[in-house]
Design a protein around this nucleic acid. Structure first.
Length: 556
RNA sequence: GCGCUUGUAGCUCAGUUGGAUAGAGCGCAGCCCUGCGAAGGCUGAGGUCGUGGGUUCAAGUCCCACCAAGCGCACCA
């Protein structure tokens, strides 16, 4: 059980008793908030309940606290309950309970930290979803890392998670891509043809065209251009997707579903969606186009779903896609992760989902803010069109997967971030990534030593763990389930890297203070107890690293 | 012009539902290994939390205005 919940329960019971025994008058019920005090002298947990009640009860908060505190019933986990001005009730954890939690961690092993929050509810996390018209760049990587970590956390919180990548294989930009590729292909055979207006000018297009030319020969030169564009396009699309998959694989990200826009039309989902909107009176025809009447739903303006030409817009496809997510596939919740350039689409997408009869609360759209790439003082602009960008691949070559994941993950997606390549490279030898992994390697090395010395610590007595450094380490470890729960609720994985760092600090401090494998006669018992603690640390730290998608090295 | 996001230490950033002395890493000044990995530990300096109002017993956190930065505001995706 999460200790915070336990304390909340104890307080609820105390309140009830206070009411029943007329120790406190009845008042307006307030939510009981249990928090972690900043300072250790205020205990492990604290509540401001008396301060909140003071007004409605008309009693001095300190007085309320003093009446309430004695009613908190004793518990194995709780050491002391005391009152402090101006009206806090503080709780400290019992050292013996902390020590015994080491056994629970060992017992839970890999599953330590899991919380029964989602109860098997199905959640789809859709992320990256870059159109396969160009390579993945740094900005996409941020959303990729966020989505993946979020999916890991939701799984740990007992949700049934599907990771999904959506890509538009229909539409203008793909046509443009196909045409650009055809031109580059012809140019590879020294034909004098011009790139189309607004074509994809990046070097990768030339590289790909040359590679296809080398593999497939000149057969596309000798067929009608529409056929050549079509066939060449499919080859190009396949190659782009492969490249994206390879890149993501290097970032250690795998998707359960690669969803193609195309299938929405083939399987009638698009038609069904439009019918549903029509039946709900959400469609209007104006200037030959069909609009989503979102103004009626409180939006700033209406949006075109079907152009005058009869061709559906990107928005129409996206609405159909969300119809597919909620209605066809029945996900109970959906999390979309979009880049900052899509932020203006959030409210209309939610409006559209609502118009389809789905509670918009079931859709969460997370926006990752822009990543500005810098090299020293120089700002590097990212633009797929001109081909002037830093790709994910280049980033991984420069800084490696783990630092890349850590840097993106440690920052709240709401704040735009500077990613200085120079700095990231320079810090590679001396940054939090290595600090945390170093702790893990240290742990492994201690456990190895114990193995070499043939120390069997299974019978170790954890009640011997009483040193402040030992208890501080355990305090950090028992906080993991609560953290996972809160991250799963707020959908904010960026707390995890910070927790991992605190945990590593606690371990390093313990290591400094307490000799684990001791050859001094008489130390056998404490050695065994501490080895249990070390093993538990390995479980918790390893869990954190895996949730972040980082390696948990035995050696460095 | 309207909307979304951001503004916290020299730099990069944390700061859950308002709480009791505002935190971390890097950088800077020092100290600690003839025993498990010094890629480590400890101590110190460094802050008008963009500005000004307001709500509250209590505001970095909530509300309003302003300033600054980024991103949106297409029958593009």
């Amino acid at each position: 059980m999460i200790v915070r919940h336990l304390i909340k329960e104890l307080l609820e019971q105390a309140m009830e008793e206070a009411l029943n025994r007329d120790i406190l008058p009845g008042g307006t019920p307030t939510d009981i908030v249990v928090e972690h005090p900043q300072s250790a002298e205020h205990g492990d947990f604290a509540t401001n309940l008396p301060l909140k009640l003071a007004r409605s009860l008309g009693i001095n908060p300190l007085e309320i606290a003093q009446r309430l505190a004695p009613l908190v019933r004793p518990d194995d986990a709780i050491d002391k309950v005391w009152v402090e001005a101006p009206g806090f009730i503080n709780f400290s954890l019992k050292p013996s309970w902390l020590a015994s939690s080491v056994e629970s961690i060992l017992e839970d092993d890999e599953s330590y930290g899991n919380v029964p929050l989602g109860k098997g509810e199905s959640v789809q996390v859709e992320f990256v979803s870059v159109n396969p018209t160009g390579p993945i760049h740094v900005g996409h990587a941020r959303g990729a890392v966020l989505g993946d970590a979020l999916a890991n956390i939701l799984s740990a919180a007992d949700y049934l998670v599907t990771r999904e990548y959506y890509f538009n294989d229909a539409g203008n930009q793909m046509e443009n891509f196909y045409n650009s590729l055809y031109v580059r292909y012809q140019q590879a055979f020294d034909r004098q043809v011009e790139m189309p207006e607004g074509g994809y000018m990046g070097d990768y297009m030339m590289d790909m065209a040359r590679a296809i030319a080398a593999e497939e020969g000149e057969r596309f030169l000798n067929m009608p251009s529409t056929q050549a564009v079509e066939e060449l396009g499919q080859i190009g699309l396949g190659r782009m997707l492969k490249g994206i998959q390879d890149n993501l694989e290097r970032l250690r990200i795998r998707f359960d579903v690669w969803f193609k826009e195309h299938t929405l039309y083939e399987e009638g989902q698009y038609e069904k969606t439009m019918d549903a909107l029509r039946q709900g009176n959400h469609l209007v025809v104006r200037d030959e186009a069909t609009w989503f009447a979102s103004t009626a739903l409180g939006e700033d303006k209406d949006n075109v779903l079907i152009r005058g030409s009869g061709v559906p817009t990107y928005f129409a496809a996206d609405v159909a896609y969300h119809y597919n997510k909620f209605v066809e596939r029945g996900f109970s919740r959906v999390v979309d992760i979009w880049g900052a350039d899509h932020q203006g689409h959030v409210s209309r997408m939610k409006a559209a989902v609502g118009a389809l009869g789905v509670d918009p609360q079931r859709l969460t759209i997370l926006i990752t803010q822009i990543v500005t790439l810098k090299s020293g003082d120089q700002v590097l602009r990212a633009s797929k069109r001109t081909g002037d960008f830093i790709t994910l691949e280049e980033l991984l070559d420069e800084v490696g997967t783990d630092p890349c994941r850590y840097f993106f993950l440690a920052r709240s997606p709401d704040s735009q971030m500077d990613f200085d390549l120079e700095l990231a490279k320079k810090e590679s030898s001396e940054n939090p990534v290595y600090y945390i992994q170093y702790a893990h390697a240290r742990i492994a090395s201690i456990l190895n030593l114990a193995g070499e010395n043939r120390i069997d610590y299974r019978g170790g007595d954890v009640s011997l763990l009483t040193d402040p450094a030992e208890l501080a380490l355990i305090r950090r470890m028992v906080a993991l389930p609560e953290l996972i729960e809160s991250m799963a609720i707020t959908l904010e994985p960026h707390h995890l890297p910070h927790y991992a760092q605190e945990l590593a600090t606690a371990f390093h401090w313990f290591y400094q203070q307490c000799r684990v494998v001791s050859s001094t006669p008489g130390d056998e018992a404490i050695t065994r107890a501490r080895l249990k603690l070390v093993k538990a640390s390995s479980i918790v730290l390893g869990r954190c690293l895996r949730l972040m998608g980082m390696e948990a090295p035995e050696k460095m």
